[in-house]
Simulated assay, not measured.
Amino acid sequence: MSLFWKDSVVDAADPATESFVAHRNLLFTVAYEMLGSAADAEDVLQETWLRWSGVDLTEVRDQRAYLVRITTRQAINRMRTMSRRKESYVGPWLPEPLLTSPDVAQEVELAESVSMALMLVLETLAPTERAVFVLREVFDVGYEEIAAAVGKTPAAVRQIAHRARRHVEARRPREVVPAKVTRAALDSFHGALVTGDLQALLDVLAPDVVLLGDGGGIKQAARRPVLGADKVARFLLGGIGKHGVAFSGTPTLVNGAPGLIITVGGEVEGVLACHVEGDRIAGLYFVRNPEKLTRIGEETPLSLR
């Protein structure tokens, strides 16, 4: 049996390939949480495979750890390249949304780690800090293994992990509500949008709600965050009013939490994710950049193991 890997064909019966395929979902999740981009995560996996295929497996004690190490190194290199791209990005940069399975939503730790709200917090970390935080806090990798992956001493990694943890804790969402609460808030939000009911929309939005739109300079989106319930509500209703009954939202799971695929006239306009605090929406993340919507046709498998 053979597998296609972009422009290459690899033998699925080969021991290196078997090991890589067995850990592929884990490696993709590691890369995605470090990068926030599925496209870049896939490129990192290809680079990981190219390096892994040349390794003498008889010299590898722990294949999973070795693969994570390669993936981490490649992801750190890619993060530095991405930081230069983001400097010229038009408007807010949001993580690439992934459609995820109910299994991801039920695995609370995984769902929180890939949530739009937390992924945006991770964007505020330096590349090595982000890698250390993700490996330690999300995947529970030991300090010595992380040190080998990032090229630091275990003592230095402990300091980086402490600093990154403190940074994230100060900025991460204050609470994680059950998916059913998020779905109820999102259903109310959707109903208010469809009917154009300003008061109903204000009732479901937190007073200090923040709306971030990512059009990437390709699609129209707010160039700056929209702050406050009244401004967000009027901004949304003003935009949807142009489309009337042609507007609709299809419920789905986005990055482990309830979200909407927004369509106008049957054409996909974007993916909407949200963060709920209490029973109100405190954060709205609307990705319209078509380059970030290439994976919404099917679920992306994610794994912590």
Rank of each mutant, 00 (worst) to 15 (best):
residue 2 S to E: 14
residue 2 S to R: 13
residue 2 S to N: 10
residue 7 D to M: 08
residue 8 S to N: 15
residue 8 S to H: 13
residue 11 D to H: 05
residue 12 A to Y: 02
residue 12 A to V: 15
residue 16 A to V: 09
residue 17 T to W: 02
residue 22 A to S: 15
residue 26 L to S: 07
residue 26 L to W: 10
residue 28 F to E: 04
residue 29 T to E: 02
residue 32 Y to C: 00
residue 32 Y to M: 00
residue 37 S to I: 00
residue 39 A to L: 06
residue 39 A to Q: 08
residue 45 L to M: 10
residue 48 T to E: 05
residue 53 S to W: 12
residue 56 D to Y: 12
residue 58 T to E: 15
residue 61 R to L: 14
residue 63 Q to S: 04
residue 67 L to G: 01
residue 70 I to E: 01
residue 71 T to I: 03
residue 74 Q to T: 05
residue 76 I to H: 02
residue 81 T to R: 14
residue 82 M to V: 14
residue 93 W to P: 01
residue 94 L to C: 09
residue 97 P to F: 05
residue 100 T to D: 07
residue 101 S to Y: 09
residue 101 S to E: 10
residue 103 D to Y: 09
residue 105 A to K: 00
residue 107 E to C: 03
residue 109 E to P: 06
residue 110 L to N: 01
residue 111 A to G: 04
residue 114 V to F: 06
residue 114 V to D: 04
residue 114 V to P: 03
residue 114 V to C: 05
residue 115 S to T: 07
residue 119 M to N: 01
residue 123 E to C: 09
residue 127 P to I: 00
residue 128 T to E: 14
residue 128 T to P: 05
residue 130 R to A: 03
residue 131 A to L: 06
residue 132 V to I: 10
residue 132 V to F: 03
residue 133 F to Y: 10
residue 133 F to E: 03
residue 133 F to W: 14
residue 136 R to Q: 15
residue 142 G to H: 07
residue 144 E to R: 11
residue 146 I to P: 05
residue 147 A to M: 08
residue 148 A to Q: 03
residue 149 A to R: 06
residue 151 G to N: 13
residue 155 A to H: 05
residue 155 A to P: 09
residue 157 V to N: 00
residue 159 Q to H: 08
residue 159 Q to V: 11
residue 172 R to G: 08
residue 177 V to P: 03
residue 182 T to P: 02
residue 187 D to C: 03
residue 188 S to K: 15
residue 192 A to S: 11
residue 192 A to P: 14
residue 195 T to Y: 14
residue 195 T to V: 12
residue 199 Q to G: 05
residue 201 L to T: 03
residue 208 D to F: 06
residue 213 G to H: 06
residue 214 D to C: 09
residue 215 G to V: 04
residue 216 G to F: 05
residue 217 G to I: 04
residue 217 G to L: 06
residue 218 I to R: 13
residue 221 A to G: 14
residue 225 P to L: 13
residue 228 G to V: 05
residue 228 G to R: 03
residue 228 G to H: 04
residue 229 A to V: 08
residue 229 A to T: 00
residue 231 K to W: 12
residue 239 G to Y: 08
residue 244 G to H: 13
residue 247 F to V: 04
residue 249 G to R: 01
residue 253 L to D: 10
residue 253 L to W: 00
residue 256 G to N: 05
residue 264 V to H: 05
residue 264 V to C: 08
residue 264 V to G: 11
residue 265 G to M: 12
residue 270 G to E: 05
residue 270 G to V: 01
residue 272 L to A: 01
residue 285 Y to T: 00
residue 290 P to R: 08
residue 293 L to P: 00
residue 297 G to H: 02
residue 297 G to Y: 04
